[in-house]
Amino acid sequence: MGARQAGATERSSQRTASAQTASRQSGATERSAQRAETKQTRTESRADTRTSGQQERTERQGQRQQGQTERTEARQQGQTERTESRAYAAQNIANDWDGHHYYDDDDDWGWALAGAAVGATAGYIAGAATARPTYVTVLPCTPTVVPYGGVSYYGCGGTWYNRSYVDGSVTYVTVTPPPGY
C-alpha cells in the first residue's frame, strides 16, 4: 500500500507541477500578449502623433503662404492705387492748363502756380545753358528775392534759384543770376 500511496503522491505532485507549469505558461502568454498589445498601442500612438504633427506643420505652412500671398496682393494693390492717383492728378493738372494759364475754380493759387511754373521753366532754360542745375527742397539760407521779368529769383551766397514744383512739392532749381547780379 505504501507503493500505491507513493505513486499517487508522485502523480499528484506531477499533476500539480504540470498545472503550475501550464499556469506559468498561460501567464507568460498572457503577459506577452499584453506587451504586444501595449507595443502596438504605442506604435499606433506615435504614428498618430507623427501624422498629427505633420498635418499641423502642413497647415502652418499653408497659413504662412496665404499670409505672404495676401501681403503681396496688398502691396501690389497699394502700388496700383498710388500709380492711378498720380496719373489722375497729372491728368487734372493737364486739363486745367491751356498752355498759358492754369485754371483753378477754387481760388487764385492756380495763377500763382502757373507763374511759378513759367518762371521756373524760364530760369531752368537760362541756367541749363551754363551749368547743370541742382535741385533742393529747402534753401540753405534766408534768400535775397529779386523779381525780374515776372520771375522771382532767390539768391543765397552767390547761388541763384527759381522756385518750381515737383510732384506737388516746392523745389528750388539753380539758375544763372538775374541781370545785374
Rank of each mutant, 00 (worst) to 15 (best):
A3C: 09
Q5P: 01
A8L: 13
R11E: 10
R11S: 11
A17R: 15
S18D: 14
A22T: 05
A22G: 02
A22L: 03
R24A: 14
R24N: 12
Q25D: 15
G27Y: 07
T29S: 13
T29W: 06
E30I: 04
E30A: 08
E30Y: 08
R31L: 13
Q34N: 13
A36T: 12
T38S: 09
K39P: 00
K39E: 07
K39W: 04
R46P: 00
D48M: 04
T49C: 01
R50N: 07
S52E: 05
Q54P: 00
Q55C: 00
E59K: 10
E59A: 15
R60T: 08
R60K: 13
T72G: 03
R75Q: 14
G78W: 02
T80G: 09
E81H: 07
E81D: 12
T83D: 10
E84L: 07
E84K: 11
S85Y: 06
S85L: 10
Y88R: 15
A90L: 04
A90N: 09
A90C: 02
A94H: 09
W97M: 02
D98H: 11
D98M: 10
G99I: 01
H100K: 15
H100E: 13
D104K: 02
D106L: 05
D107L: 07
D108N: 13
W109I: 11
W111V: 12
W111G: 13
A112I: 14
A112F: 12
L113Q: 06
A114V: 05
G115R: 03
A116I: 14
A116H: 05
A120M: 04
A120N: 03
A120Y: 01
G123K: 00
G123M: 01
Y124L: 06
A126G: 06
A126N: 06
G127N: 07
G127D: 05
A128V: 10
A128M: 15
T130I: 09
A131H: 07
P133F: 06
T134C: 06
Y135R: 05
Y135G: 01
Y135F: 14
V136Q: 14
T137D: 13
V138E: 10
P140K: 12
T144F: 02
P147L: 06
P147Y: 03
Y148N: 10
G149S: 12
V151N: 02
S152M: 09
Y153N: 01
G155A: 09
G158H: 08
G158T: 08
T159Y: 04
T159G: 03
T159A: 04
W160Q: 00
Y161E: 02
V166Q: 10
D167Y: 05
G168P: 00
T171A: 04
T171I: 05
V173F: 02
P177T: 05
G180A: 08
Y181L: 12
